[in-house]
Amino acid sequence: MNDNMPMVEVKNLDVTFDTGRHRVRALAGVSFAIAPGESFGLVGESGSGKTTVLRVLAGLIRQWNGGITVAGKPLTPDRDKDAKRAIQMVFQDPYGSLHPKHTVDRILAEPLQIHGIGDIENRMKDTLEQVQLGAAFRFRYPHQLSGGQRQRVAIARALILRPKLLLLDEPTSALDVSIQAEVLNLLAKLRHELDLTYILVSHDLAVVAQLCHRLAIMRTGEIVETADSEKLAKGELTHPYSRQLLTASKGFDRAAIAAFTDL
C-alpha cells in the first residue's frame, strides 16, 4: 500500500432513515479522509450523525449513498469476510456488548473459527496479554468481570482478527474516570504497537484530545469543522457551534450558558 494513500476515505456519504411516517436525513454529504495510523475523532451531540458514520463503516447500516474506500478498496454494503475482518468495533456499553452466556474464551475464539484461523490458543493468549488481562480471565463469564475488564475483553475481541481499522463508539463513556484513564492509555498503546487506525466517536472533547490527532465536529448530519488536536487544546476552533461545545466542556459558567443558542 502506498504511504500517501489514506486508510479511510469517505466521500459525500448520505444516509436517510425511512421510518414509515418520517424520512430523516441522518447524514448529508459527509466527507473525510484518514491517514494510516492516524487517530480521528468524531465529535457532536446526539442526532449529529457521528454514530451513524461509524455504523455505516461497521457495515451495520446497509442503506447509504456515497463513496467509501478502506485501505484502497471500495467498500460496498455487502462485504466478504476479508472486508469484515479489516474493520472491527468497540461498543459504548461494556455491559451490552458481550454475550452474557459466553465465556471470554468463546467470545475470543469464535471470530477465529469463523475465519478459519488456526493457532487459536496462541492468538488468544497474545491478545489477552495485549489488553493486559491475564490468562486467569479466559474462562470467566461477563458477569464475573468489572466494567473496565469487560471493555478490555471487547477490545480483545476486536483485535483478535488483526484489523486495520478500529471503530471506537464512546468506548469509555460508561466507565468511571479512573478506569477510563486505563482504557485510554491502553488504546493509545495498542494503536502505536499494532499500527492501527482509529475512528473515535465521543461527546467528550477532553477524551478526543487525549486520544486523537485530528477531529471533525458534526452537527445535524454534517461536518461543521475539522481541526487537529493542537488547535483543540489551544481552543482555536472557529465555527460558532464548535466554540459552544468547547465552552460547554469547561464546566458550569453562567455567562457562557446565557450565550448558548438553539436551546
Binding site: S178, A181, A188, A206, V207, Q210
Partner: peptide, 20 residues
Amino acid sequence: RGLLACTPNLENPVAVLPTL
C-alpha cells in the same frame, strides 16, 4: 487527587494518563 489527575484535560493533554 488521583481522580483529578486521571481525568483527561483538554488544555493540557498528557501522553499517558496517570492511573489511580
